[in-house]
Nucleic acid binder design. Sequence first.
DNA 1: TATTGTTATACTCTATAACTATA
DNA 2: TATAGTTATAGAGTATAACAATA
Lengths: 175, 175
Amino acid sequence: MVEIATIEGVGLMVRGASTEQAGASPRKDFPIAERPGYLLHKAGLVLVEDVEKALGSVGMRIRDFFVLAALAGGPELSQQDLSRLLNLDPTTVVTVIDEMERNGHVERRRNPADRRRYNLFLTASGREALATADRVATEVESAFFGGLSADERAALHTTLGVLMAGRWPAAVCSD
Amino acid sequence: MVEIATIEGVGLMVRGASTEQAGASPRKDFPIAERPGYLLHKAGLVLVEDVEKALGSVGMRIRDFFVLAALAGGPELSQQDLSRLLNLDPTTVVTVIDEMERNGHVERRRNPADRRRYNLFLTASGREALATADRVATEVESAFFGGLSADERAALHTTLGVLMAGRWPAAVCSD
DNA sequence: TATTGTTATACTCTATAACTATA
DNA sequence: TATAGTTATAGAGTATAACAATA
């Protein structure tokens, strides 16, 4: 059995457990792990795993967090708005909001100006859940980015902003 | 209808299409979009989407690319090795390798030292497919990171390396 | 005629359990 | 007794199509 090495120098290597089998020492490159794209992809996955795990301890999924956060802002969103903002299928939004309405976190209120739509309203309970999720997520983020200096964090934030500029869902809010 | 703004200053805002409805101008914060964690998560997703789309044009999925790349290196991996390296369920590996064997990209060869295992062998056709996928992925990466200077790219790469240090699957290669 | 939300349904993906052959 | 691979199956997640209400 062989342990995988941490990323160092040129990147990730799978290398032999030299302590156990001196002669064997199978070593294997996994070159795409050196790619910035693969690293970015993997870092996003690992972070989400961390957040999912932490939110699980308070009975929440990461998507619930996103939905609560989306509904916490200014004018109330419709389900279609939410669908576009979070890149969720409209039928998925039905299920998600159904559950949140059962939880008492969200209320559907008919939009008087367009009775086909609901305005999704975050209840006090929903705001509490959001505050909890926000605290949990902040803790995970702090740990995840803990190895970086303040300057490195700021630079990362700026860089990610550049990468994502203009790459958000096009239409989000109705009216 | 309202368009979403690109990330600027404090972060993402959904704001009114002021050209159409002067008075309405609904404005909505989506504060978690300012989080470095959310940006990282979203950037990873968008990049993967780009790669999936580009690889689709050559009849490949991104996971095929990862598998081909993993098998291209030194000593041949078993299905369990691949499972650990790419964080795939062993039963999923069966399906993936089945398909790749039908494609002629991979061959299962019994490991003589342990006849329970296969050594997964990448054929010439598999290497061609890998070369194609590598070229496609490189083009997408170039476009995705195109807005960054060489220094910014290097800094991002370093930072991602720090974040991922020690966060890879523990055991990967057998023997 | 188009859009919002809904339901039913199918499809994909993944995970679980049981089995075999090997160790 | 444990492990590698396989199969069958169940479950979650998501997407598709059709529908009712409203614009």
